[in-house]
Design a protein around this nucleic acid. Structure first.
Lengths: 201, 201
DNA sequence: TGTAGTCATACCAGTTTTGAAGTCAAGCCA
DNA sequence: TGGCTTGACTTCAAAACTGGTATGACTACA
């Protein structure tokens, strides 16, 4: 898919896009996101500033790839889960596995540098969170499909939102795994048991 | 509280602030947030653009009052709830009551115009959501206090985040009440019963 | 007298607009 | 088959606009 032969035009466009993205990412990692201007990026990629915005709607978008893949994985985690597995268990497993993959990072330190950059740049953290949350409808729809519903119920919508929030909650902290597990604990069994247990001292 | 006699200086400052805010709000409602520039606002309020930013850190802040009150109400809903009421029930009641107060709007249509403005302006929706979510730590702390904990557990943090999300989820739709109730249904009893019921057809 | 509020001015960076120039894909005609 | 026309796409320079910051002066108040 997506491997149809590209014409010269398409290829050139893709090359320009990549040149901009590569130049920018390098400079961002070295000097920090806010310390690199669009005009500098354009200069480094040898294009005009206008061209940068012809490819990327915002400065933040320059370093993020399409998120269709993420969305597909999320939906697939629900749709293609093993028989007998609950949706929550499937999503929880997906989060934990994604976490593992980041930890045993194949790509060496590149990914680490990249994530540090995002971590220390509020504008990028926000943008990434926003991208992630855009999957909410897709996730809710996927869940609705599992139950043969035309449209997600309000409960499903709420659940989808909560599930996505768990991920954001987790990436912001050190003990990522513990946060994911706590999030799903609350989300699966509800708050009532937590409150009951805490009340019992 | 806050009613100590103000000196001339303080009064003038407050007057300037109000002049800016009033002028801006009017123009925003009439022409839309994005169609009014800071320079225009300054002109209309008869101050310099610099002065606008001496009072408000961002353009979005011009039309929002302090949110300390909101936070206090939220915390109070937990802290001062009737004996025997669960935290969830208290927060749910608080949301529903706040909704009622908006519906039986004393201030006539002004509030409606104001909320429409926010509704149709992404930058303002985001800003309002961000303001609201800043209460997360305060809410989590308040809940921790209820259980005599020094610091909120991960479950409490997750719960606090979910609860605040319910509000955002609800304000974005027509059937606000139904969304609030669905949100708390999922949050209180958990997702498991929802999935079980949906699975049973 | 000192300080807080205001100001004019200049500036920066992201983003949009404009209108033009160059490049390519595709059909058309010889 | 080869060249030409056409229209769409990509890039461009240049300028403008906007939110926001920095500077240093001025003024009214405490």
């Amino acid at each position: 898919m997506g491997t149809e032969p590209m014409g010269r035009r398409e290829r050139k466009k893709a090359a320009t896009r990549k040149a901009i993205s590569d130049a920018a990412t390098l400079m961002f990692i070295e000097r920090g996101f806010d310390e690199v201007s669009i005009r500098e990026i354009a200069e480094a990629a040898d294009v005009s500033p206008t061209t940068v915005f012809a490819h990327f709607a915002q400065k933040e978008a320059i370093i993020f790839d399409e998120d269709d893949e993420q969305r597909e994985q999320l939906v697939s985690a629900v749709r293609d889960r093993p028989r007998g597995t609950t949706i929550s268990a499937a999503l929880r497993a997906y989060y934990l596995q994604a976490l593992l993959e980041v930890e045993h990072d194949h790509d060496g330190e590149n990914l680490q540098l990249f994530m540090d950059l995002i971590d220390r740049t509020p504008a990028l953290r926000d943008y990434a969170a926003r991208m992630w949350l855009r999957h909410e409808d897709a996730l809710a729809d996927a869940i609705a499909v599992e139950f043969h519903l035309d449209t997600p119920s309000e409960e499903i919508r709420a659940y989808a939102r909560f599930v996505l929030q768990i991920q954001l909650l987790a990436t912001g902290t050190r003990n990522t795994r513990a946060v994911i597990e706590a999030g799903f604990r609350v989300l699966d069994a509800g708050w009532a048991p937590v409150e009951a247990e805490l009340s019992a001292r």
